[in-house]
Design a protein around this nucleic acid. Structure first.
Lengths: 221, 221
DNA sequence: CCAAAGTAACTGACTCGTCAGTTACTCTAG
DNA sequence: CTAGAGTAACTGACGAGTCAGTTACTTTGG
């Protein structure tokens, strides 16, 4: 019909070099796992979506689990990289929080399948420790953010610092959970302005954080 | 040997009346689903754990999915009931939040399998809409709590009220996510005092909530 | 009081579909 | 013409759901 070489137009496009094919397979697998979840995704689905046979898939990845792990690790690396960069770029802790939230919204928007994959499998120990690791790394990033300035403060006694570390550790799941929950909620409510959602999250989290970080207690009433 | 009627002592205890058996199967299934998750739980596991044949299981429940749904619905009913009761019992919104958090901690402690089941499947559309419903009901309970007093306030114009409703809707996922995340985190860190965790959650959430509820903006710095 | 008849709980051994993983072959780019 | 990209067709195992039959308990006619 048309040009014979690697042309995009005719229905079939075949015979890619190894590395490129592998990349494509990873992308396709990410989408499938993200959309259906690990258990409902079959290797045939992935192969079909890549317009390729299942056997070829197995020439690139030894097993379903290995494929999943590889996909997941790429996501984890990407996301934690972005988060760390964002946190490190900001010196003010409020701006650090804002930056992290923005990273999450950005990522969820740009890579909805990857986001869905992560969210879906975060609490499933059955598919390997990679996602636990992501969660822990996120937690570490949070804790660092919370404590970096405190730790550098020479006026604080080690005892006071220890107390603060403990409180900070308790804050991590609160912040973590609200951020992820907000992003997921926003994805399901596209009519809501992203700016509002983002801003609300920043205010909500920073308010609780800042007051508690400074050790202030609640007013009694 | 001993008493002839339904005696408990001899190693095997079989042949229970229909209703009791059904109850037992539901309990066992809850534990299995909670521990392994839907996909990794096989009907044979449930049957074996109940010391019963798979066929019997199918005389009580038409399918794996139906069994799962039945288990889930019971949990949803129980939890939302407790939450509603807790919220209704408190007139102060801060105490309402404290009450909800306490309900969640109580439930997660007393019924760890049920808790694990709910948390694990919250974001999995594949196993039916029951858990979405739970999430939405929790959300509704939150929103009600947030807005009940506001709605009753005659000094607020409808327009101001609408603005507040919108903000409240944005607050729901933040509160919701942080609560659930905190409870799950605490379950995995048994060395942490429950009172501290609970108190921290109350303070964190109420702080953000109260300030935003009153429409106050953040200080600029 | 107690067979024998009736019934409900229960089981072992099957079917049938599905899906991860393999094998033996074909095609094509260089 | 050949290496390696690609496939169609296969296998083996597993798991949901079924069914013919057995076992324990209950009822009732004598």
């Amino acid at each position: 019909m048309s040009g014979s070489t690697g042309d995009a137009s005719p229905g079939v496009r075949r015979r890619m070099p190894y590395a490129r094919r592998r990349e494509q397979l990873l992308q396709v697998a990410l989408a499938e796992f993200g959309r259906r979840g690990y258990h409902l995704t079959q290797m045939e689905h992935v192969a079909a979506a890549a317009q390729v046979s299942k056997a070829l898939l197995y020439q690139h990845f030894a097993s379903k689990e290995e494929l999943f792990v590889e996909v997941t690790e790429a996501i984890v690396a990407e996301l934690t990289g972005r988060l760390n960069a964002a946190v490190l770029a900001e010196h003010d802790s409020r701006e650090g929080i804002r930056a992290m939230i923005r990273v999450l919204f950005d990522y969820a928007t740009a890579e909805p399948d990857a986001w869905a994959l992560v969210i879906r499998h975060l609490d499933k120990p059955e598919v390997g420790p990679e996602l636990r690791e992501l969660r822990d790394r996120l937690g570490t990033a949070f804790a660092d953010l919370l404590l970096r300035r405190r730790r550098a403060d020479p006026k604080l006694s080690p005892a006071a610092l220890a107390v603060n570390e403990h409180r900070a550790r308790l804050l991590v799941p609160l912040m973590y959970g609200s951020m992820l929950s907000m992003v997921s909620w926003w994805l399901e409510h596209p009519d809501t302005s992203r700016d509002r959602a983002e801003q609300m999250a920043v205010e909500f989290i920073w308010l609780g954080l800042d007051r508690l970080r400074t050790g202030e207690r609640l007013p009694k009433a």
